[in-house]
Every structure is written in structure tokens, then in C-alpha cells.
Amino acid sequence: MTAGRVVSAPAARVGAARPPAPRSPGRWAVLTALVVLAVVMLFPFVIVTLNAFKSPADYSAGSPLSLPAHLYVQGIVDFWNRVDFGQKLWNSFLISGSVAVAAVVLSVLNAYALGIGKVRGRLWVLVVFLVGNTLPQEALAYPLYYLSKQAGLYDTKLSVILIFTVIQAAFGTYLLSSVLGQFPHEILEAAALDGAGKWRALWRIVVPISRPTLSVLLIFFFIWTWNEFFLPLIFLISNDNQTVPVAIGVLQGEKMMDATMSSASALLGIVPAVAFFLIFQRTLTRGVTVGAVK
């Protein structure tokens, strides 16, 4: 799991518009240092991609830095077929999508009661949710494993969906409650005068107005769930249910994997993650900073 539990705008506007400061030779030194660091950070991505397209013979003949002699996709195809990667993608997508939607719905219901309804004892409810989200999954794993076996849910996608819905919703409740705490009450009062009940007010007024925040939550829940490893590793043991990170993580270091197939597997893990980053960046750049950071 990543540490990225603070929802923020990864690409908000940078730097204030000001006339450029006087030029000095030192500035190029600073820029060079920062660019070198960027190259180091990106190096693994580049080198994995380069070598995923080499044949094993090509790899042992040249250096890892050399370009492929010819574009060789057999390593990727072989890995794809061996783990049935399409199935894994679908499993990950189904699990993460279901969790994201269900966790947003639960977060909205909770935050409606806590942020707008201001039910008594709401501070304690929030603390309990937050502690629940902070607990290490190790301290829940075995009982959950045991209970899911008893309930016949072990090795089903549903078990993982249920668990992560609760874990993500616990965090979403915390975030969304503070956002809805500032919801303009006049709008709700006007709706009440028009005879709209709480249920209608929630879906007709609160949800549409909070849509930008909700879509950010949805995206984060999706990505966080996609990236999960520990509980899916324990719960999804059959090939038909495994997620992308589990399938790739479990095969790592296996004897049958040669150098180029290993890099092909790494590449297949990287591509969806980077794709989400690129697709969702625009939503996240709309300057939405929901958050823990006031």
C-alpha cells in the first residue's frame, strides 16, 4: 500500500507569475542537478521497457542499456498467456471498481449523518473510523481469513470487495465529513420548506453539489484498491480470482522466468498504473484539494 493517503492535487499550478529574476550561471547547475535526479527516478521505467522487447539471446548479447536489435514481443505474449493476464486485468478492474463505487456511497451516507446531520457523538464515530482505517491489516487478516472460510466467501472476489469497501469508506467518511460540514445550510432549509425529505435532499442536492469531491474520492479508492497486495494475496489464491499485483508479485523470482520475461511481467504491471495516472491526472488537476491538509 502506498503512503498516499492525503488527497491532493498532484498537478496544481506551479509557481507564481512573476517577471523572471536576473539570470545567473548557478541556475543551470541547479537545473542540471534536478534533471539528473529525474533521470535516475525514471531510469527503472525506461530500462524495464527497453528489455521487455528483447529476445533472451538479444539480452545476453548486449547490455541492458542497448536498444533491442529487433522488436521482440514474444516475452510479453508468453507471459500474458501464461498468467492469463486479461483475466487478471478484469479481476482487478471489477474489484477496484466495485469497491470505489460502494465505498463512495457509504462515505456519502456516513458524511451526511456526521457532517450535515451532526448526530450526537460524531467526533467519536470519526475517531473510530479513522483508527479502523489506520489499523494494520495484519491485525485483521487471520480472523477475516477464518471467518470468510466459515461463510464460504474465501477465495471469492466478493470477500475482497467487502473488506476494502469498509476500509476505504472509513477513510472517505473522515474526509467527506469535514467537506460536508461546510455545506451551505440555507440550500437544505429551502429544500425542506419545499417538502423534500432527508433522503431526497441527499440525492437531489448534496450529492450533485459535491460531485467534484466525490469523483476525486472515487478515483483514489479505485487506485488504492488496485494497488493493494497483502489481503488480496491471502484471499485470492485461485488463478481465476487473482489481481494484477498479486499475479505479478507471486511469479517474481520463479525459476521459469528468464531475464526478458521478468521485465515483460514488470512492464505489464507498470502500464495500467501509469495509464491511470495519465487518464486521471486531468480530473485531479481541477484544483480540488480535499483534505487532511487544511
Binding site: 502506498t2 498516499g4 525514471l42 494497488n227 499485483p245 508479485g249 504491471g269 498504473a273
Partner: peptide, 19 residues
């Protein structure tokens, strides 16, 4: 560029470096 590693599932990041 600095942020890109963060978007990876941590297990996939492990596989990249394991390789």
C-alpha cells in the same frame, strides 16, 4: 518525474527492482 514511482502498486515496484 519524481512522482511517477508512487503510482505503481508497491508489489510491482518490487518486481521492477527485483529484476
Amino acid at each position: 518525474a519524481y512522482y511517477l514511482p508512487q503510482v505503481l502498486p508497491i508489489a510491482v515496484a518490487g518486481v521492477v527492482w527485483g529484476w
